[in-house]
Simulated scan of single mutants.
Amino acid sequence: MSVAYVTVTVLTALINGTAAITYLIGHDYPKAMVTMKRLPLGWMPLLGSLLAAGAVGLLVGFAVPWIGTLAAAGLVLYFAGALVAHLRVGSRKLTGWAVFTALAVASLVLRVPGGGLGF
């Protein structure tokens, strides 16, 4: 396991776990983002749960590699959906999206040198 992989994966799990908590407790910022994207506020627990599952899955992936691979791929898909949601409403505020996506992609890509994707 490379230092880069461990560092990026832990950082990705940390920021996604933090984001999950803000969605699950109903913080104002994710409410504003969901409203801006014209999504139902009732989706917040689902979105938070998906982020939490991705964060936990990345950490479990240190012990069970294929779970980490699936978690990283799931986060990449989650943020692909977030991009579509942003563009659908004409939002060009994509800095946060870019950071989260780059870390999710890096977590997935950095798995390869350590012995494949874990399958």
Rank of each mutant, 00 (worst) to 15 (best):
V3W: 15
A4C: 07
Y5R: 15
Y5A: 14
V8K: 10
V10K: 01
I15G: 13
I15H: 05
N16I: 00
T18D: 07
A19W: 04
A19E: 03
A20W: 07
Y23A: 05
Y23V: 04
L24F: 15
I25H: 02
G26T: 05
H27I: 03
D28L: 00
Y29Q: 09
P30L: 12
P30E: 08
A32D: 06
M33I: 08
V34L: 05
T35E: 02
K37I: 10
R38E: 14
R38S: 05
L39S: 07
L39T: 06
P40G: 03
W43M: 12
W43T: 08
P45I: 00
S49K: 09
L51F: 01
G54F: 06
G54P: 05
A55L: 11
V56Y: 09
G57S: 08
L58Q: 05
V60P: 02
V60S: 01
F62I: 04
F62K: 00
W66D: 08
W66E: 10
G68A: 02
G68K: 06
T69N: 10
T69A: 12
A71N: 13
A72T: 03
A72W: 07
G74H: 13
L75G: 03
L75T: 09
V76I: 14
Y78Q: 12
A80C: 06
G81V: 10
G81N: 14
A82V: 05
H86L: 08
L87N: 10
R88A: 15
V89T: 03
V89A: 01
S91R: 13
S91Y: 13
R92C: 03
T95S: 14
A98I: 01
A98K: 05
V99I: 15
F100V: 01
A102Q: 00
A104K: 05
A106V: 13
A106L: 12
A106N: 06
S107K: 12
L108V: 08
V109W: 04
V109A: 12
R111L: 09
V112T: 08
V112C: 02
P113S: 05
G115R: 08
G115C: 02
G115A: 10
G115S: 08
G115P: 07
G116T: 06
L117M: 07
L117F: 09
F119G: 08
